[in-house]
């Protein structure tokens, strides 16, 4: 097994919520990400799945150090990112990039597609001549499926799918090794989603990229990921290679998520057994004691309220955090 590209160890991101005016005020701590660990290998796609408030986007940003960490380590090829000086970290940013959910909002409306795509390039290679920058930008546009002659157009003149391609071109122009994809297809039409997913998979194969693919859509994550991590209220519930996670989900939350996704087939969809969870997600500001999922879990017992189960090995590449993971499926 190759050495990991990125190694995340007991990562915690906490936010202080509440007004902190000139004269102070009440404060709460939101544990958006609470003790997440994983390794990411070169060329691998890790899917992050979970519902709103599970901390998946926060985790993605914290890995890129776009957010301050509470504690924990993110080690990039042996170097602890948290220890880098701001200037060193800026240098590091050419290696790791991000793609956003809202394609239009992630592009500056006052800049042309060419300027947007060129920005990371000219930031790191200010010595490049204009003609050379332009030539590289146009090559990149062709690579992501945009017409190179559209270089002077503005974001609002493109459709959502095309804007997402601009965002992808911006992310890969410095040939990074890691791209965090934060819900990159959720805002797109169904027919366009497939185009973008295929593009990302092609680019990965061509450039040897590692991807962290954040999505609430289990079907999309299953399609693109090698390994999948399921998060709930900032904690890892289950992490496993794709096939064993979908074929044999061990955590009751993963099982519920799986059965909640509507299948586009009327016969299967109407006949399938459903685990409909009770209630809503608890507020992340005031999470339940012990296992955060216990308030909605069909298997919860006394022990679940008392302590958070540890993430334990349950297969070759399968870890699960549940006191009752061994229980038979769907009681």
């Amino acid at each position: 097994m190759t050495a990991p590209l990125l190694s995340v160890n007991d990562l915690k991101v906490h936010f202080e919520i509440g007004r902190r005016g000139l004269f102070g005020g009440a404060r709460h701590v939101l544990k958006a990400v609470d003790g997440v660990s994983f390794d990411l290998r070169p060329g691998e796609t890790l899917g992050l799945v979970g519902e709103s408030g599970c901390g998946k986007s926060t985790l993605g940003r914290a890995i890129l150090r776009l957010l301050p960490l509470q504690s924990g380590r993110t080690v990039w090829l042996g170097r602890d990112l948290a220890r880098l000086a701001p200037r060193e970290m800026r240098e590091m940013r050419r290696e790791m990039q991000i793609i956003f959910q809202d394609p239009l909002a992630s592009l500056n409306p006052r800049m042309t597609a060419g300027e947007i795509i060129a920005e990371p390039l000219v930031t790191f290679r200010p010595e490049l001549k204009r003609a050379e920058v332009k030539q590289r930008v146009q090559a990149m546009m062709a690579k992501v499926g945009l017409l190179p002659n559209q270089i002077n157009r503005y974001p609002h003149e493109f459709s959502g799918g095309q804007c997402q391609r601009i965002g992808i071109a911006r992310a890969i122009i410095n040939e990074p090794r890691l791209i965090v994809c934060d819900e990159p297809v959720s805002a797109l039409d169904v027919s366009i989603q497939a185009q973008i997913i295929n593009l990302l998979m092609d680019l990965q194969a061509e450039m040897g990229l590692s991807l962290i693919f954040i999505s609430h859509n289990l079907a999309v994550v299953r399609h693109i990921s090698h390994r999948v991590m399921v998060l709930y209220l900032g904690k890892v519930m289950e992490i496993a290679d794709r096939d064993s996670l979908y074929a044999n989900p061990l955590h009751p939350y993963t099982q519920a998520l799986n059965s909640a996704v509507p299948v586009p087939d009327p016969d299967i969809e109407r006949a399938k057994p459903r685990v409909v969870l009770k209630g809503d997600l608890p507020s992340p500001l005031n999470p339940p004691s012990g296992c955060p999922f216990r308030t909605r879990c069909p298997r919860a017992t006394q022990v679940c309220a008392e302590c958070m189960p540890a993430l334990e090995r349950a297969g070759a590449d399968h870890m699960v955090a549940c006191h009752h993971a061994a229980m038979p499926d769907r009681p």
Binding site: Q97, A105, M111, P120
Partner: peptide, 20 residues
């Protein structure tokens, strides 16, 4: 806005983020 975050993630300096 996300495009500010994108610029930040691309290593763009604060000065350029403000002016550009």
């Amino acid at each position: 806005k996300e495009f500010i975050e994108a610029a930040h993630a691309s290593g763009v300096s604060s000065w350029h983020i403000i002016t550009r």
